[in-house]
């Protein structure tokens, strides 16, 4: 049963990911990304990381992809040129794919990733445990994240100021 769920979700995710890469339209691509994220959320659920699945959907699918869609529509592109399967680019792409797959699988095979005994009820699925870790072991990264968010907010404000055109600017 679990295997079946895993297989379905993984195939679904992979298909949507390929859809992101191959889509002609940017909006289509964003939609595919959304679906892919949904699939990944399902996989998270299967790994008993319920909170994370929820957070993924909320933050990533809800905020990030939405932002993407906003920008895509704002920039009002005239139907992006599709990626055509020809030329040097294609060949290079194929080679790159082969290389990457080989590399990653080499590492996966050589590394000793045995099927460890899965725990019955996974230990890390409660909010209490997460927050305990966040406030003790990972306190510093949390503070740094705070700074990061502050600075990125400032950055966004600065970057999106309207530039007044100067007379001698071309």
């Amino acid at each position: 049963m679990e295997h079946f769920a895993f297989t379905c979700l993984s195939v679904f995710s992979l298909a949507c990911a390929i859809g992101v890469v191959l889509s002609k339209n940017a909006i289509n691509g964003a939609m595919c990304l959304l679906l892919c994220l949904a699939g990944i959320a399902g996989l998270f659920v299967q790994l008993h990381a319920y909170l994370l699945a929820f957070v993924l959907v909320l933050v990533y699918a809800g905020a990030v992809v939405a932002l993407f869609l906003f920008i895509v529509m704002l920039l009002d592109m005239q139907g992006g040129r599709a990626w055509k399967f020809r030329g040097f680019n294609a060949v290079a792409g194929m080679i790159a794919a082969v290389l990457l797959v080989t590399g990653l699988n080499l590492l996966a095979v050589r590394g000793r990733l045995g099927a460890g005994p899965p725990l019955g009820h996974s230990a890390g699925s409660s909010l209490k445990l997460y927050s305990y870790q966040l406030f003790t072991t990972y306190l510093l990264p949390v503070q740094v994240m705070g700074f990061l968010l502050l600075i990125s907010m400032l950055g966004v404000i600065v970057l999106s100021r309207r530039v007044t055109p100067k007379e001698d600017d071309k």
Binding site: I18, V20, M77, G80, A96, A97, V101, A108
Partner: peptide, 16 residues
């Protein structure tokens, strides 16, 4: 790994 590779390919080949 497969998802990662697909994403990387996308970075390589897309123009938008």
């Amino acid at each position: 790994a497969a998802l990662f590779v697909i994403g990387f390919l996308g970075v390589l080949v897309r123009k938008n």
